[in-house]
Design a protein around this nucleic acid. Structure first.
Lengths: 344, 344
DNA sequence: CTGTTAGCGCATTCAG
DNA sequence: CTGAATGCGCTAACAG
């Protein structure tokens, strides 16, 4: 079913149908005829062809590292909120944490095409920079700093520092501080959080020793492995800080597993939340991201609330400003954070 | 940058470039020239225009009710796995649990267009049926039974029945059985699981009383509310079964909250896992979906493992069979389940 | 207000 | 093997 056939059936020109569809000048009687035919045939115009002509899809593509993540879903919720208010739709592409796939999907979106792209970034490689510089469609980067595109990122260093202080205070003389981080190629989650964390410790005279650190993937399973290894080798850990709440969940699982194995498990109440007890001395687990699921079932570990939804909202607004108003001035936006579930 | 410009720069016709790109006859020397120009310019053909011509995008659209869900991400992981193996890419559209938005995105995909659509379904309305009947592109429905499209669904009734038996056995004489379900408009999660659950109870001589049931949304927050209401009104609950693990997480949160409020909280170890203790009598929480996150931090509640990844795999295979081989015979596929974390 | 016309960028005839 | 010509379905001038 094409616009031509509709035109023929309605006894008008295809241009008239097009105008009818797009709100141009059409006389009442022709409107009637066209309407009738369209209803009868169930005709739907080809977005395809329209976009080819108009270069405007009212569509934004979002590239995300993974689908099953609270933080990412909060960002996309923010994006979706402003997009739908302004008549755009959102398409998602998930890369399963493979930076190479990010490029593939960025290119797909570029010439599919969509009007703009939001990249929820992890690692920014040379390929990424190249794309950002040359992209035909506007891109905004969320979650990482970059000078090659409009970007919105979080104060990961500051959050790390604040968490470092909490860890140092909590550890006191009770035991050592351990840290499970992620690849330093991820500047925000890998580098900034850890550097900040170390700075925070230092400011209170504490320190992170290398044997008390591990690297993890962005999964619970990987966090579990890392924590298990740590717990087996180091028996004097008082605080186990993790670079994400997901990793922290894995760490909690490991602590539960250890205590089950080695001594009767006791998961005991300590005021408002649980602490995971191992070898008679409790280990405090901390995270980043303020995962609500984790909070619900554990009562909440000390963690950092970033304005993920806000970054989605701001990101989409920035993007639409470029798309619709051709805004040219590059913008970098840094969002703050809040410590939550800090205990005594 | 268009194919024409490339042709001009390389001193050949646009047809030659097209053939070069798509593996047709081109002499070696022309190949060289074209290759050179394309590399220099960084030319990328417009997927847009190509699809308009060929009607083939090598793209599959997946409509999902929400992004932040373990079960859904497992389905999409399965889909992605077979798609990428067969040279397709996947685009996602999330509807935030609004069936109306499903229709919008289905139509978007239909005439964007993609080669096929996977609908991870919740509620199948009249609009849905209409779309399925009339869609220009093949659709497979995952997660719900329908006669209007190829579908892959799970044995929700059987799973519910099995869980009903577990609940009845666990409750014994200790207390009553409560159930938090979802809208019955969702035939699989709402109707089938609950009906099955009741059947399971009945088979062991137990029963679910109406005052011991609640309806919840598909969120933790809603599960929390429902459970709280239940716990406040009914003091003799021994087993609290929930239609999803997410709701169960909310229920656990509610139990923690209650115990905190009313009596000193004790979250105590009972063999391999925790039970949430309220008013001196423990309440066993059960779910559906085998959420790994929940398992990690709680040790695991009795729940049902559905083959979500498998349904994604099968769904994608079915879809590609239709797309590539024009497979016409309608298929309905029912997948089994496994009870996990059943205790003693 | 309306129809005719000319492309959007590409792939595919069909002569050469 | 190659290029000129045609049209995918639609919209944007343009001349009525």
């Amino acid at each position: 079913m094409t616009i031509k056939e509709i035109a023929r059936l309605a006894g008008v020109s295809s241009a008239a149908v097009s105008r009818y569809l797009n709100g141009g000048y059409v006389s009442e009687e022709k409107k009637e005829q066209i309407k009738k035919v369209i209803e009868e045939t169930g005709y739907q115009p080809s977005a395809q062809a329209r976009i080819l002509r108009t270069k405007r899809a009212c569509l934004v593509g979002v590239v995300v590292p993974k689908i099953n993540s609270e933080s990412i879903s909060r960002v996309t919720a923010g994006i979706e909120q402003v997009l739908s208010r302004r008549g755009y739709q959102m398409l998602l592409a998930s890369t399963d944490n493979q930076p190479a796939k990010e490029i593939t999907y960025l290119k797909l979106f570029e010439n599919y095409p969509v009007d703009g792209i939001v990249l929820i970034a992890t690692v920014i490689t040379g390929e990424h920079k190249k794309f950002l510089k040359e992209s035909k469609v506007p891109v905004v980067v969320v979650g990482q700093y970059t000078k090659y595109a409009n970007c919105i990122y979080h104060d990961d260093y500051g959050a790390g520092k604040a968490m470092g202080k909490i860890a140092a205070a909590a550890a006191g003389e009770k035991g050592r501080i351990a840290y499970i981080g992620v690849t330093r190629e991820d500047k925000a989650v890998g580098t900034a959080r850890e550097e900040g964390f170390r700075a925070g410790l230092k400011s209170l005279g504490a320190e992170l020793e290398e044997e008390y650190t591990r690297k993890s993937q962005f999964t619970m399973e990987s966090g579990y492995e890392a924590a298990l290894d740590l717990l087996e080798k180091k028996k004097d850990i008082a605080v186990l800080s993790c670079a994400t709440d997901t990793i922290a969940a894995g760490a909690i699982e490991a602590i539960l597993a250890c205590s089950k194995k080695k001594i009767p498990q006791e998961v005991q109440d300590s005021g408002s939340r649980m602490e995971y007890v191992l070898k008679g001395s409790s280990i405090k687990v901390t995270g980043f991201g303020d995962n609500q699921f984790l909070k619900a079932v554990t009562g909440g570990i000390p963690t950092v609330h970033f304005g993920y939804k806000t970054s989605g909202i701001r990101g989409a607004e920035l993007l639409l400003d470029v798309i619709e108003r051709g805004e040219k001035i590059p913008i970098e936006m840094k969002l703050g954070f809040q410590i939550v579930n800090e205990q005594e």
